[in-house]
Amino acid sequence: MSFDLTPGEDLRQILDAAQSMLDSHYPVARLRDGGADGLDPLVDFGAFLLALPEKEGGAGFSVVEEAQLHVAFGRHLVTTTALATAIARRIEPEAVAAAGVVDGDRWLAIAPRDASHILARTDEGFVFAKMGAQSDVVPFGASRPMARIVPPPDHRRADRETDHTACLLVAAQLLGVAIGARDLAVDHARTREQFGRPIGSFQAVKHHAADMALGIEMVSALLDTAAIALRDGHESVGFQIAALVRIAPRVALETARAGIQIHGGIGFSAEADAHHFLKQAHILRQFIGTYDMLQDPAPLAPYGKDVS
């Protein structure tokens, strides 16, 4: 079929398997203990091989399937090292890379322990380098371990396709964060009672929840079409990635913020999980960076008067 946006059976099977793995090894509640995520369950699952050709030991899936896998990782707030590693292995097959962002003349590495490399978002796009000497910093809100590093002198820029892939997968995780925050808030709104009824029966709460669904639907649709454009080399890929990078961080942040509000007092406490989604959204927002949305031609540009 030439036009088809229904997820296939193969994809559903991978996602079911991923969900079992995530439920066993990365339940969101694990973050209450503040431990660092290991990568072993992800390696065993084949998370870093999924998109490699079968003759290289991979599963031969495309970025379309891989993006959906990262949505699931995002929902479970899996360490950004898994995300950066999945991207970095397109450059260096054995690398374990921490995610990095540029902060003035130094880089900030997220969860850098055990990482051999760093994949950092700079003004020129994603760059890849050996991990440098680290000095610890105090992360905001005790979120994730972070360290400052001196920018490695011999870093490599990702090529255009890897850059697009990186944007796609980070956006996929941002979508997952939004979905996770929404599900948590909706569950709470269904069960928490005040004034003798579930708070989710009040329109003020419902409309917050509806706004979450609206944002998620848009990012999810953009993710699907951008992933297909990237896989198939459509000429609109730059435009679609730019739109995704523009919208996904905003939706994740807004949804996480509304999620805390819907939880009320417990949402402000560190004992509920709502704040973890907000913090992950902030980290991923910095990691995805910005992309010029006005640069590429629009696929639905109007025809000029002189077209014939």
Partner: peptide, 29 residues
């Protein structure tokens, strides 16, 4: 480039692309 108006137009352009993606997906799924 970089003006507040340009930023606003960038948001609108991205959202129109989002609506287009939603339109395709709802039509085909």
């Amino acid at each position: 480039p970089g003006s507040a108006t340009a930023e606003r137009l960038a948001d609108l352009r991205a959202e129109a692309a989002g609506l287009r993606a939603m339109t395709w997906r709802t039509a085909l799924r």
